[in-house]
Design a protein around this nucleic acid. Structure first.
Ligand SMILES: [Zn+2]
Ligand SMILES: [Zn+2]
Ligand SMILES: [Zn+2]
Ligand SMILES: [Zn+2]
Lengths: 367, 367
DNA sequence: TAAAAAGGTCACTAGGTCAC
DNA sequence: GTGACCTAGTGACCTTTTTA
């Protein structure tokens, strides 16, 4: 017997607090928020600009006042765009005009936390600080999100005649671009800058491979990269002919709630033991493990993660999701280990080294 | 089958009598009154000052003569500011400059009734006296309204460093201020001063808790107090951690028409049986019940209340509103009883005692 | 095949505009 | 500042598709 998805969930819209009749686009929500999401999810945030500070409260009364913040809350709570029937259509024909970057690169929100008043009409156990943290993580990810860039570049390349293509950008460059995507997210994330330079470097060296690989799976899903010939070719060149099978396997099983993935990625980045692929320099491992600061951050992240899961899916549902997420990461780690690949390691090493160096430079600038 | 909001309502603007095309801001109104309200509702009455006696008649012809009285009539008829999309915006950033008090404290209207010529272009069954009564009640409430004061004070406190805050004003003080808000309204209200000193004291003792609690819910909604950290902290301290959930529940379900609430509050204050929370002194109960004066006042208020409801919402709509209002009060009473709280009782007792004493003193002064 | 969750429709109404 | 007119967003209700 399979429990219903709605079992144990209160019939209250997580977005605005109005009465809900069921789950829409993966989130318990009312009819109006359902319709709202359907209408605006595709239009890209570019059209919707908040006239205030991007933290309007969303309640039954105020929900129609700021479409930008409402849509943002929908996404943050895990509403899943891919459940729109039009999604597959529009996605394969992505238009450069759909670029979200213009908004996102107005980096004027960060580094200060962006609360996005999630606390209202609240029946969860998340504290205000935890909501802020969640909102901040999601915002940092989106701000540093390179999908629009990648899409644009891939399309530019596809437009070129095949022979010229490979010259413009090698396969390695394409993949390196994917693999570097996580770096600015980690660097701009809450807590990361508070750590000592040594710790930051150690965390990057220790966790970047795993976290970044997972991030690649996420990016591939979000932009339907497996539909793109240029991308597939690059993968074939670097990872071998059967990479498509593996990729499809992991992409299709990836957690659907993007917010959960973003939190998980950061949690992996602050982890002490998420890598079995690269034998680490034992010195670094010790550095991390012995540091109470990292331990505290892990605690904060995981606590928030759990509360969010239970808020969103109820206890049983939350436990299930957590369980399958952990299994997923372990399977990914296993697969990375099995398919260990020199070119991949090389790319990761380059990125890690570059990041480490830039951290050092940043650190020196401060004095 | 749900009846339309407009069903059974004549297409006549309740404000000026012009042709109406539908409901705007919760009130059947014409285009011009709709636009007028949108333009002026936010500007606060402070800017609009009547050059006459604050009782200009508002008709199709005269509506543009006195903006102050027109706006006042809009509000009195139940036009709902919260339906302005900008409302949530301005509300979250309340400015002390927005104080309405300056006008309201020009106590030169009262104690005489302020008619605000509501009788014109009238298709209702309310008599002239009933319109006067309604207008007078609303005016008395607004005159004694402490929201601007509270807002200002809470903002002052939030600006202070946390440690100083608690010294300036304890949680109990904040809440006591909320709970005392109703007292001047009742005392200045029509009919109250006409009663004997014993009756007045008995009514306060008997009904203050219920009426004042409901008034608090109203105030909380009107000033979005649940967004205010200082206020929330005070509530937590006195009422326990889960008060937020309860408050949200009651605030979100509260009748949206402020005028109805004001009438209801006064009706509760003149009630003989609105309390199940505090076991009352049987002597007082007897005093009230046996007095024909209170019974008459109840009758007058309830009759006016009903006629207003039917005028505003039609028969079916009026019955529904009345029904849900009664259910609301009963649920509030039930909840107050369930969550009986020593500190709350203490505060109410203090206020009631103080009021009773001041009534005695006022009474003695008169001789 | 029934429930769940997607899309579609249309009356309603808030906001903007421009002549006055 | 006012008000006739227009536009576009909203959400209650309905239909179609998917899923178990
Ligand atoms: Zn909603
Ligand atoms: Zn906003
Ligand atoms: Zn009118
Ligand atoms: Zn006037």
């Amino acid at each position: 017997m399979v429990t219903k998805r709605t079992a144990g969930l209160p019939l209250i819209c997580l977005v605005c607090g109005d009465d809900a009749r069921g789950i829409n686009f993966d989130v318990m929500s009312c009819m109006s928020c359902k319709t709202f999401f359907r209408r605006h999810a595709q239009k890209a945030v570019i059209k919707l600009e908040c006239k205030l500070d991007h933290n309007c409260e969303i309640t039954r009364r105020t929900r129609s006042a700021c479409a930008a913040c409402r849509l943002k809350k929908c996404f943050t709570l895990g509403m899943n765009q891919q459940l729109l029937r039009r999604w597959s259509v529009k996605c394969s024909k992505s238009k450069p005009a759909q670029v979200l970057k213009t908004l996102d690169r107005n980096g004027n929100y960060l580094p200060k936390p962006l609360p996005l008043n999630l606390l209202r009409n609240d029946h969860s156990t998340l504290t205000k600080e935890e909501w802020n943290l969640l909102s901040n993580i999601v915002h940092t990810y989106d701000k540093t999100n390179i999908i629009p860039d990648i899409k644009y570049q891939l399309e530019q390349q596809s437009a070129l005649p095949p022979k010229v293509r490979s010259k413009v950008s090698t396969s390695v460059d394409v993949l390196k671009y994917f693999l570097s995507a996580l770096q600015p997210f980690i660097e701009d994330s809450p807590y990361f800058q508070d750590l000592s330079i040594d710790l930051r470097q150690a965390l990057i060296q220790h966790n970047y491979d795993t976290a970044s690989t997972m991030n690649c799976v996420f990016i591939i899903r979000e932009m339907s990269a497996l539909d793109n010939a240029t991308f597939l070719t690059s993968c074939d060149v670097v990872y071998g002919y059967d990479i498509f099978k593996y990729s499809t396997h992991f992409v299709s099983r990836l957690e659907s709630n993007s917010t959960l993935i973003k939190i998980l990625l950061l949690t992996l980045a602050f982890s002490t033991n998420c890598s079995i692929v690269n034998p680490d320099d034992p010195k670094n491992l010790r550095t991390i493990s012995n540091t109470i600061a990292v331990f505290n951050i892990q605690n904060i992240l995981v606590t928030m993660f759990w509360k969010y899961l239970i808020y969103q899916y109820g206890f049983i549902g939350g436990v299930r999701r957590f369980d399958s997420l952990i299994k997923y990461v372990l399977e990914l780690l296993h697969s990375m280990n099995e398919r260990a690949n020199a070119q991949h390691e090389q790319m990761i090493d380059t990125i890690v080294e570059k990041t480490t160096r830039s951290l050092t430079i940043d650190d020196q600038k401060m004095y």
